[in-house]
Amino acid sequence: MEGKFEPLVLAFCCNYCPSCSADLAGSAKMQYPSNIRIIKVPCIGTVGTIHILKALENGADGVCLMGCLEGKCEYSSGNYRARKRVQYVKNLLGKLSIEKERLEIYNISAAEARKFCEIAREVTETVRSLGPIPLKIDNSKI
């Protein structure tokens, strides 16, 4: 099958600011790549190592976490925890020889619909340039 590679990126969005900015982007009819699929979570600190790994295992080419601005976490330090966790998982990816750039975390405020779109584009392009995630077995079996 020949064709253009369209990456698939799973975005975990904190239900506070980042989800707001995503909704705002939608209501302001701003464009962002459809490659980004959003899962809303109560706080970005609740995204565990396992959630990130499973997303990649199940066929996402990239994963990004969107948390509230530094110091603005509704639960005091969820976004800080998430940032440290992303570092940890990047390490694990390194051990698997999977590019660390497939995983990234961003801080975004509720109003930044434009930034949300920019991030969405940036992430999509990064992952596009990396190509499909090198898992050679079809996922549907698992």
Binding site: M1, K4, E6, L8, R37, K54, A60, D138
Partner: peptide, 20 residues
Amino acid sequence: ILAESKAILVDASLMSDRVC
């Protein structure tokens, strides 16, 4: 959440003409 992420991914990979 895991199921949702999987559903989204399966759904998406079926729809898009990804090169694997």
